[in-house]
């Protein structure tokens, strides 16, 4: 009986220490880089919203470790000072680690204010005509991607 009690105490202690360890992760070390620019390098931020193929989701400190593939769209970064930065990503990956650090790696990323709304609309209509004139399945699929991306661009530029 005593042995059982000490064992259960041991188990409880283990649970306690893991809870405490996770409790330390109040900060979120955030890294965001693309082929053209480094936006954040290990900076502490409050929250990050990302568009991914498994749905759009927000990341707060202590988020469960996750890997996701980025979808073209706007990443919102809520900085500690209260500003919100909106950055359009073409594609890439997001990694959330056990220690609450987050990395976003994008092929191309630009602040939304750098997107030209007229150019985005132009791309969308071009992609649509590309889709209707596509000769084979691959060209059709490529045009479909172009429509999806330029729709996201038009939406972000609004």
């Amino acid at each position: 009986m005593a042995a059982l009690r000490s064992m259960s105490r041991l188990l409880m202690n283990r649970n306690l220490s893991t809870t405490i360890k996770r409790g330390y992760a109040e900060d979120m070390s955030f890294t965001f880089a693309s082929g053209n620019q480094v936006f954040y390098d290990g900076q502490n931020v409050r929250q990050v919203d990302v568009p991914s193929f498994s749905g759009s989701f927000g990341i707060l400190p202590k988020h469960v470790p996750t890997l996701a593939v980025l979808k073209p769209g706007v990443v919102s970064v809520y900085e500690n000072e209260g500003n919100v930065k909106k950055i359009f990503v073409s594609s890439g990956t997001v990694t959330i680690n056990d220690d609450s650090s987050v990395q976003i790696l994008a092929e191309e990323a630009h602040p939304v204010e750098n997107i030209d709304a007229a150019a985005a609309r132009d791309l969308l209509s071009k992609a649509q005509s590309q889709f209707s004139s596509a000769a084979n399945e691959q060209a059709k699929a490529e045009a479909e991607i172009a429509i999806e991306v330029s729709e996201a661009l038009v939406k972000a530029a609004e």
Partner: peptide, 12 residues
Amino acid sequence: IAARLLRQALKA
């Protein structure tokens, strides 16, 4: 494809 389109949608 997505990256190329984003580059084309940037301000001039």
